[in-house]
């Protein structure tokens, strides 16, 4: 045994990865399979699961109902489809906004003198020291009708003598979007920074030397060479935004229900784990499909893709 440990490289590897492997099997693979199994069951009146094999939770998620108000035998209820599409579009918008905001910043940091770069990266991580939920609460303070932003605007309006009606910002889709972008921006900045920082200055010089204006150098050098960062950042932002419920819960209130909120509600309030599990499986499938097509189009992190 000891001798094998000393000499067999692949045995050493197995030993080294086994704690993580056991952890992942026990706490990821098994629960995931359990979720899949539960999603095919149905809810008992006391909120426990009656195991079975039925697609009725999925049928309900896609909005196909057999009990209709109009008396038809089958009809379409778009409530869950709306939640799904709202989640998708919010995740999409958050990702796009995050790219647009993170790119110039990451570029600026990557081109800063070496000593300053670490300071800037440090500053980007500072907000992470505060709890996620507290940061969302801070946005509530800012966006409330009686909040900081409305207070400041009212004071300014008072100075010029305008009548000011406070803006309704909290509990809107915009509030959720702002909160999401704020929470996940660092996850876009860091991979972008890493890939932009790897771009050799001499490539920029060679591009200019061969007649490319700064704009064309950006299109032909900077953008394609930073694609790995865009891809990693997108994955790191899109996937969690699809699943979180805290931001939409606090900043969106009852109006903005995302698939994350739906799942949370099914488990904690409606006490229907079977429907919650089905929603989880759908969330995961959607995320996988989007990520799959996205990475197939733009390559996976380490690959450099020609645009």
């Amino acid at each position: 045994m000891l001798r094998k440990l000393r000499e067999d490289k692949s045995f050493q590897g197995t030993i080294l990865i086994s704690p993580t492997l056991l952890f992942m099997i026990g706490l990821l693979i098994v629960p995931l399979l359990l979720t899949l199994v539960i999603s095919f069951g149905s809810r008992a009146p006391d909120g426990t699961v009656i195991y079975g094999f039925s697609f009725h939770n999925y049928v309900r998620l896609f909005g196909i109902r057999t009990e209709c108000a109009g008396g038809e035998s089958i009809c379409f209820d778009p409530i869950y489809a709306k939640i799904l599409s709202r989640s998708l579009s919010l995740a999409f918008n958050t990702t796009v906004l995050a790219i647009l905001m993170a790119y110039p910043l990451a570029y600026f940091i990557a081109r800063a003198p070496l000593k300053k770069r670490n300071t800037f990266l440090f500053l980007i991580l500072v907000p992470m020291w505060t709890n996620f939920v507290i940061r969302v609460y801070a946005w509530m303070m800012l966006l409330r009708t009686q909040g900081v932003i409305n207070g400041a605007l009212g004071w300014l309006a008072g100075l010029v003598g305008f009548h000011f009606t406070p803006l309704e910002m909290l509990y809107t889709q915009g509030a959720v979007l702002v909160g999401m972008v704020y929470e996940f921006l660092p996850f876009m900045i860091l991979p972008l920074y890493t890939s932009l920082e790897k771009i050799d200055l001499s490539w920029y010089e060679a591009s200019a030397d061969l007649g490319a204006s700064p704009f064309r150098t950006f299109l032909r050098m900077t953008l394609p060479l930073s694609m790995p960062g865009v891809v990693s950042g997108t994955i790191l932002v899109f996937i969690p935004v699809m699943g979180t419920f805290i931001v939409s819960d606090l900043l969106g209130g009852r109006q903005i229900v995302l698939i994350g909120n739906l799942i949370q509600n099914q488990f904690l309030i409606a006490r229907d784990p079977t429907f919650g599990s089905a929603a989880s499986i759908i969330l995961m499938t959607m995320t996988l499909i989007v990520t799959y097509f996205y990475t197939r189009k733009f390559g996976f992190s380490e690959e450099i893709v020609v645009v």
Binding site: D200, W203, S207
Partner: peptide, 9 residues
């Protein structure tokens, strides 16, 4: 260029 600066992509 001394480093050639060939475009890697």
């Amino acid at each position: 260029f001394q480093s050639y600066a060939l475009f890697p992509h």
